[in-house]
């Protein structure tokens, strides 16, 4: 087991370096650089401004040299300074936004699993019933409706028309002056709309998945055997069927780890949430290479970590894998 984990870990290093090489060169292939962006379509810069910016950003050096400079800093866990005019450290910029996005995503994911799994299992158990059909239609509506549109409708209805919920942002303007309980309440009220809407949009995937995998297990012979032995329906479903049906959920959990830092620009804009989606979008538009690389590398690390955790977790819970890999 330990050998297996160690081998998997070592194999990640070349993979990560490969990812950074590809990312670095691909983002440099896009036309325009941060220096161009600073001077384009602006008559008030002097002839020397572009050179000044290129030198400042280190863009005057050959690409491979830029990469090695970047790599040299990266191995010391330094992502460099942003090319944006604030000149902040990339780690600081990501640090400001990461907790917000990860927090929201974890919260949403919790509710997606909390609602989606039982929904799928129930759909499978009462297969082709009215409930099954209704649930299917509902989750697919959620999947098909554009999130930002639904968000705007809900914001208008609950925020402006009824006035029950705040419209945008994560906290009120006077948040800092509130008591701890007030803060919690304020934050919760702000979170209701964005979390509900993202949960509604994502239920389809997990509930369909739970449904089909439960259906599959329910058709197995050992379930028939269990029923034949006169075991109660509850025990059949929860003790025998679900344990096996939900094994693949571990894979899904693992694969959704990198998704934790991702978020949609439109969704964030509509709700005025200062998250990773906007940071990444703005960085790409400005050709802010250090920030783009920082976000991509974190994404790559999380993807690798997610796969790794899923593999290891599998080995723990599924004896077949554990014994097979020695």
């Amino acid at each position: 087991m330990a050998g297996y984990i160690l081998r998997r870990l070592l194999a990640m290093i070349p993979l990560l370096i490969g990812i950074t090489v590809i990312c670095f060169f691909v983002i440099n292939l896009a036309p325009g650089s941060a220096a161009d962006m600073r001077v384009s379509m602006n008559p008030k810069y002097s002839e020397t401004a572009r050179e000044k910016f290129e030198k400042m950003y280190g863009l005057d050096k050959p690409l491979y040299e830029q990469y090695f400079i970047w790599l040299g800093k990266f191995v010391r866990l330094d992502f460099g300074d942003s090319f944006a005019t604030d000149g902040k450290k990339v780690t600081e910029k990501i640090g400001e936004r990461l907790p917000i996005t990860v927090g929201l995503n974890v919260l949403s994911m919790f509710f997606i699993f909390l609602i989606g799994l039982p929904l799928g299992v129930a759909s499978a158990y009462w297969r082709d019933s009215v409930f099954d059909r209704a649930a299917t239609v509902a989750v697919f509506i959620g999947y098909a409706v554009p999130t930002f549109w639904l968000a705007l409708i809900c914001m208008y209805w609950f925020g402006v028309h009824l006035g029950w919920l705040p419209i945008s942002g994560l906290t009120s303007y006077d948040y800092d002056s509130l008591s701890p309980a007030g803060k919690f309440l304020d934050l919760s009220r702000h979170l209701i709309l964005p979390v509900s809407i993202s949960v509604f949009g994502a239920l389809a995937g997990i509930s369909r998945f739970a449904r089909s995998s439960t259906l599959e297990v329910l058709g197995e012979e050992y379930i028939t055997a269990a029923r034949a032995r006169g075991i109660g329906e509850g025990a059949v479903l929860f003790r025998h069927a679900l344990r096996n049906a939900l094994l693949p959920v571990v894979t899904i959990l693992g694969l959704s780890v990198p998704g934790l830092i991702g978020s949609s620009v439109i969704f964030e804009s509509v709700f005025s949430i200062p998250g990773m989606g906007q940071l990444f979008y703005m960085s790409v538009m400005m050709r802010d290479y250090p920030t783009i690389m920082g976000i991509l590398v974190i994404g790559a690390l999380l993807t690798l970590a997610g796969n790794f955790i899923a593999d290891v977790a599998y080995a723990f819970i599924d004896p077949r894998i554990r014994y097979g890999s020695g």
Partner: peptide, 19 residues
């Protein structure tokens, strides 16, 4: 007090709301 609201439709709702 300048709030950061990236979407104009949201801004308009915040306006209607008096925020």
């Amino acid at each position: 007090m300048i709030r950061i609201i990236p979407d104009q439709a949201t801004q308009f709702m915040e306006l209607l709301n008096g925020s």
